[in-house]
Structure formats: structure tokens, C-alpha cells
């Protein structure tokens, strides 16, 4: 337990010390690069903004992620069970995923003008569903035929086979993809928050810091984002331990 918390904590402290040292040894002023010791002041000054904006960023990211899980799993199931769907959908999905999402922000903003919350959730979803769809699809399509046969020989329906075997068997891959999608969803949310005018959330706070040349604020936002990302990531790790803990083998 001490090692589980102590080691990551020590790593973070070393990172902050190194950052402080590099800024100090180069003699960089605040308007070039803020140092960790500038951050507490920024948090103290804007703490209410951080709470409000942080919450906005968090809920929109989680909402986008939930939609990504639903749609991604559904797409993965379709591709996993049907060869035709797989052949048809893969190039489309890969092509869509290759489009830089920043270019979509103005498009979405124009279509759903003024719907800031909706646009942000939509972008978080668009950027994060791909890994989930691919991993669920691969997990289902690579299911060994014997696994299906033990139940099919007993006359079990396709749905029963999916529920009892295919679904639990793909959970480890699913959670692997979800860990990637969590960080991607944050990028999606912040893209919209930063690019679109009159934005909300931590991205908008970052933008206002940039406009005012308030470098400590900008870095404080980045650290807050990193913190949210870590919290959400470990939330997924906890879910994984609960639902797919069996996949973890004892070390050695």
C-alpha cells in the first residue's frame, strides 16, 4: 500500500523539483516559463474559477466518454460479428479518425451554433470512440471457434453466447481501449473550449490566461487538466479491477 501511493507521489515530487530547478537555473522570467512555486498563488487567486470551470470540463468529458463507450461498443459488435460490416466500416472509421479534429471544431460550431455544451460533448465523443470500436471488434472477431462451439452444441442462442462468453472475454481489451479514450476525450473537450469563442471550462480559462499574458494561470490550468486526467484514468483502472480483474495474472 505504501509502495502503491509512495512511488507515484515521489515521482511527481521529483518531476516538480526538476521543473523548478530548470526554470531557476536558466533564470527564465514568469512571462517565458512559470515554475511550480508560482502555481499556488494562481490557484489561490482564481480558486472559484478553477472549481466552476474544472467541473464543466469534467462533466462534458465524462458525458462524451459515455457516449463513446455506447457507440464504440455497438460499432465494435457490428464489426466483430459481420465480415461485411467490418470490410465496409473499417476504411470509413480509419479515414474519419485520421482527420485532425481541430478542423472539425468550426464545422461543428457552425452546424450547432451557440450549443456550446452540446458541441463540446460531441467532440469529446468523436475523438474517443475509435479505440473502443476497434478493440471490441477485434476482441469479438478473434474469439476462438471452440469457445462458441461449447455453447452452440447445446443449442444456445447467439445472444446467450455473446452474454456468457464473448462479452466477458473482450472486457480486458475494452478497458485497455478505454484508458486511451479517457485522455483523448479530454483533448476533445479542450479543443472546443479553447478554439470556440466565449468558451467555458478549463480550456477557456487557459485561453483567458493566454490573452492576459498570465503565464502562471496558464500553467496552473495545464496542471489542473493533468490532475483531472489522472483522476479519470484511475477511475477506469478501478472499474477494470472490479470487472476484469481475472485477466491480471500474479507477477512472477
Amino acid at each position: 500500500m505504501l509502495r502503491q501511493i509512495g512511488v507515484p507521489l515521489a515521482a511527481i515530487l521529483i518531476f516538480l523539483a526538476l521543473w523548478e530547478f530548470i526554470v531557476w537555473v536558466n533564470g527564465w522570467p514568469n512571462y517565458k516559463m512559470a515554475s511550480p512555486s508560482d502555481l499556488p498563488a494562481a490557484y489561490a487567486k482564481y480558486w472559484n474559477l478553477f472549481l466552476v470551470m474544472g467541473w464543466q470540463t469534467l462533466w462534458r468529458t465524462v458525458a462524451g466518454l459515455l457516449i463513446a463507450v455506447l457507440v464504440g461498443t455497438l460499432l465494435g459488435m457490428i464489426m466483430g460479428f459481420s465480415r461485411i460490416a467490418r470490410d465496409g466500416l473499417y476504411p470509413l472509421l480509419v479515414g474519419f479518425n485520421a482527420v485532425p479534429k481541430a478542423t472539425l471544431v468550426p464545422v461543428i460550431s457552425l452546424i450547432f451554433i451557440g450549443q456550446h455544451d452540446f458541441n463540446t460533448v460531441l467532440m469529446a465523443f468523436l475523438i474517443s470512440f475509435f479505440p473502443i470500436a476497434v478493440s471490441v471488434g477485434i476482441g469479438l472477431s478473434t474469439l476462438e471457434p471452440e469457445y462458441r462451439d461449447i455453447l452452440r452444441a447445446l443449442g444456445a442462442s447467439n445472444f446467450t453466447i455473446f452474454r456468457k462468453i464473448a462479452l466477458p472475454k473482450t472486457l480486458p481489451e475494452f478497458f485497455g481501449a478505454l484508458k486511451v479514450s479517457v485522455t483523448l476525450a479530454f483533448i476533445g473537450t479542450n479543443l472546443v473550449e479553447i478554439i470556440s469563442p466565449h468558451g467555458r471550462g478549463l480550456g477557456a480559462l487557459f485561453q483567458s490566461g493566454a490573452t492576459n499574458g498570465d503565464y502562471p494561470l496558464m500553467f496552473a490550468v495545464l496542471i489542473a487538466l493533468a490532475l483531472l486526467g489522472i483522476v479519470l484514468y484511475y477511475g477506469v483502472v478501478w472499474l477494470e479491477k472490479t470487472f476484469a480483474g481475472w485477466a491480471e495474472r500474479p507477477a512472477g
Binding site: 462451439d149 461449447i150 456468457k164
Partner: peptide
């Protein structure tokens, strides 16, 4: 009908007891 293969195809997320029970559930 009961089937057994060269690969035991046990379900890793179930205990041995739960694995043996599987056909009865169907």
C-alpha cells in the same frame, strides 16, 4: 451432446466450479 477439445477452453473469469456448471445454465 457434450463436447471436449484439445484446448480445454475454460472461461478465465469463472472459477473451476462455475466453469463446470456452464452447460447446466443453458
Amino acid at each position: 451432446v457434450g463436447m471436449a477439445f484439445q484446448n480445454p477452453v475454460l472461461l478465465e473469469w469463472r472459477t473451476i466450479l462455475q466453469n463446470v456448471i456452464l452447460p447446466l445454465e443453458i
